[in-house]
Computed example of a mutant assay.
Amino acid sequence: MKKMVMIGVGVAVLLAAAIGGTLFVTGAFGGHTAASATEAAPAPVKATAAYLPMDPAFTVNIEDGFATRFLQVEINLMYRDSSVVDRATKAMPHIRNDVLLLLSAQNRESIGTPEGRLALQAALLNKINEVLTADTGSGGIEAVYFTKLVVQ
């Protein structure tokens, strides 16, 4: 009989240890494992997006076969670092020059499709950041948005 009691107590102790260990590892007792510490870490917060309009709108001639057409584009630049505004303002004559050259090299077919307009946005983004880097030491423009695009 004494042997049965000892076996029962042993099983109860092992069962309690197993349950306690499980609760500890899962964090039920406030204990943190390495995995729960990394899961609880907040994700880094991105700065709020801001926009710099490039005023006035750009108006250039583009080729359309034998005819000359006009392209008018209003552009906003998206950035997150507030120092970009000051740097872009200082470099704006250079930026506007290169944007005009890039826009005037377009033709009606290349900007007549959504894919062509997206390619133009990407080319403008690269060119603007290239000018900013050359003139001020770093880029910082994250996106170029057309707020108006008219071909006439």
Rank of each mutant, 00 (worst) to 15 (best):
K127Y: 03
N126W: 07
P42I: 08
V73W: 00
A134M: 07
N97H: 13
A28I: 02
G65A: 05
A88C: 08
I95L: 08
S82H: 11
L132I: 02
A88D: 02
G65C: 06
A40G: 08
N107Q: 12
A12G: 01
A17P: 07
I19D: 06
A67E: 11
Q72W: 02
L14I: 13
A17R: 05
V144H: 02
Q106M: 12
T59Q: 06
S83Y: 09
H94C: 01
M1L: 14
G21C: 07
A50M: 13
I75H: 04
V144N: 06
T33S: 15
L100Q: 13
R80C: 07
A12C: 11
A28V: 04
E130D: 13
R117Q: 15
G21M: 04
D55V: 12
K3E: 14
V25R: 09
A28M: 05
A123H: 01
Y79N: 00
I128P: 00
A41P: 00
V150M: 12
E109H: 05
G27N: 08
H94T: 10
N129V: 07
L14A: 15
L125A: 02
L77H: 03
A119Q: 14
R96C: 05
A37H: 08
M4Q: 15
A35L: 14
K3G: 04
I141P: 03
M54I: 13
K90I: 09
A16T: 15
R80G: 11
T68Q: 04
V25P: 01
D135C: 02
A16F: 13
Q106A: 10
